[in-house]
Amino acid sequence: MKIRSHSESHIVELEDGSRWQIFPGDLDLTLNWKPETELTVVEVEDEVATHELVGGGGKVRVRPMGESWPVRDIKDALKDG
């Protein structure tokens, strides 16, 4: 699925209209994304993310737009790298 909009570094909208919040620790992996970048949404069981966007050279942890990030788990994940 291609990117419809990625005007804010932490939010991406796909061509199906779904909007995703990108995990802060993965923002650097999105720097080379272009509108033609093909991404696949995969459901995952992760301490911080509910899904991953796979493509564009890697995997990026995401949550659907509007869902809250678990603050304690984010701090732990960012500390651990």
Rank of each mutant, 00 (worst) to 15 (best):
E67G: 03
V48F: 04
V54F: 01
R19K: 15
E45K: 12
L14K: 08
L14F: 06
G57K: 12
Q21P: 00
L53W: 07
R4F: 13
G56I: 08
G56H: 08
P35T: 14
T30A: 13
V54Q: 11
G66K: 05
D26A: 04
D76V: 12
D26Q: 04
D46G: 01
K79V: 12
I74A: 03
K79C: 02
G25V: 09
D16L: 07
L39T: 01
F23G: 03
E36T: 14
S68N: 13
D26T: 05
R72P: 00
V60G: 02
A49P: 01
G66W: 06
T30C: 14
W20P: 00
P35L: 14
R63M: 10
H51Q: 05
P70E: 05
D80F: 09
V71C: 00
E13Q: 14
F23H: 13
K2C: 10
T50P: 00
S68Y: 07
H51N: 08
R61K: 15
L53D: 02
A49M: 04
L14W: 06
H10I: 00
V71R: 12
T40Y: 08
I11W: 04
E52W: 05
G58H: 10
V12R: 05
I22S: 01
M65Q: 15
A77V: 02
V60R: 04
G57M: 11
G55E: 11
E52Q: 11
L27T: 06
V60W: 02
W20Q: 03
E43S: 11
T40C: 05
K75I: 13
P24A: 03
V42I: 15
L53P: 02
G17Y: 09
P35N: 14
E15I: 14
I22C: 01
A49I: 02
Q21W: 04
P24D: 03
P24R: 06
